[in-house]
Simulated assay, not measured.
Amino acid sequence: MQNAALTVFVVDDDEAIRASLVRGLSLRGYHVEAFEAAGDFLAAWEDRRPGCLVLDYGLPGPNGLELQRHLNAIGAQLPVIFITGHGGVPESVQAMKGGALDFLEKPFRHSELVERIEAAFALQRERLAAQHSLQQQQARLQRLTARELEVVQHIMAHPAETSSKEIAARLAISPRTVDHHRARIMEKLGLRSVAEILAWGRSGQI
């Protein structure tokens, strides 16, 4: 299990359940942090650490659903697994509509929760990898000069006009200058063709 950088955050006002979850999940190799109330969790999670949230639906104010709404409102990308001792269909529907990964009714098997946590961690790893890739690409984009960026933006805006002659006519510069800029763009962005620039742009990175 490659969970060293990911944390299972448990929020449940029942001390016995918190202790059981911390013990059981820690024995399985997870880093676990447990909290009695939503406010305690939010105070400790200010640095937006990745992982997943195992959240009791019936917390005393704010409850689990209200905490989920708050996380959604601030753009948090923390997968939520609800646990509840008295939830029903309406509650589970609300939770799932809010983006919850699952809604487990107590008592549940630890192995069942572990399956949901692994799914949540897989989702987090995908998001972190995509975020890292985007940051790398944005850093490369910042290395472009103003004119090089103008060439890239032209290619994105006019994918049918990507020859040096066509770009030169649009930007009122010589085709040879465009060739020079194109070579520098490819080097700085780590790309090999106009097609890759277009694909890169379609992925939302330009």
Rank of each mutant, 00 (worst) to 15 (best):
Gly87Asp: 06
Gly88Cys: 05
Asp56Trp: 00
Thr84Asp: 12
Val80Ala: 02
Leu78Arg: 01
Ala38Ile: 01
Val89Gln: 13
Arg109Ile: 09
Asp47Glu: 13
Leu104Tyr: 07
Glu36Thr: 14
Ala43Leu: 03
Leu104Phe: 11
Glu91Arg: 02
Ala100Asn: 10
Leu113Glu: 08
Glu105Thr: 15
Pro50Asp: 01
Phe103Thr: 12
Arg69His: 15
Lys97Thr: 06
Ala43Asn: 07
Pro90Ser: 00
Val114Thr: 13
Leu101Lys: 12
Gly99Arg: 08
Val114Gly: 03
Gln77Trp: 09
Leu59Gln: 05
Val89Leu: 13
Gly39Asn: 12
Glu112Val: 14
Arg49Ile: 08
Ser111Gln: 14
Val93His: 03
Gln94Ala: 15
Pro90Gln: 00
Phe41Val: 06
Arg49Gly: 14
Asn63Val: 07
Pro50Arg: 00
Ile74Leu: 08
Val93Ile: 15
Gly88Asp: 13
His110Phe: 12
Ala37Pro: 00
His86Ser: 14
Trp45Met: 05
Val114Asp: 10
Pro62Ala: 04
Val93Glu: 10
Glu36Phe: 03
Gly98Ser: 05
Tyr57Leu: 08
Asp56Ser: 08
Arg69Ser: 15
Leu71Arg: 05
Leu101Phe: 09
Gly61Glu: 09
Gly64His: 01
Val93Met: 07
Met96Cys: 07
Gly64Tyr: 02
Val114Ser: 00
Leu104Cys: 12
Val114Tyr: 02
Leu71Tyr: 01
Ala37Ser: 12
Ile83Val: 15
Ala95Glu: 06
Glu46Asn: 06
Leu67Ala: 04
Lys97Val: 11
Ala43Val: 05
Glu118Ile: 05
Glu118Leu: 10
Ile117Ala: 05
Asn72Leu: 13
Gly61Phe: 06
Ala37Tyr: 04
Gly87Val: 11
Ala73Trp: 00
Leu113Arg: 04
Asn63Phe: 02
Ala38Cys: 01
Gly64Pro: 02
Gly99Tyr: 11
Pro79Ile: 07
Leu53Arg: 04
Ala73Pro: 01
Arg69Leu: 13
Met96Tyr: 05
Leu78Pro: 03
Asp40Pro: 00
Gly39Lys: 05
Glu112Asp: 09
Gly88Gln: 06
Glu105Ala: 13
Ile81Ser: 01
His110Gly: 15
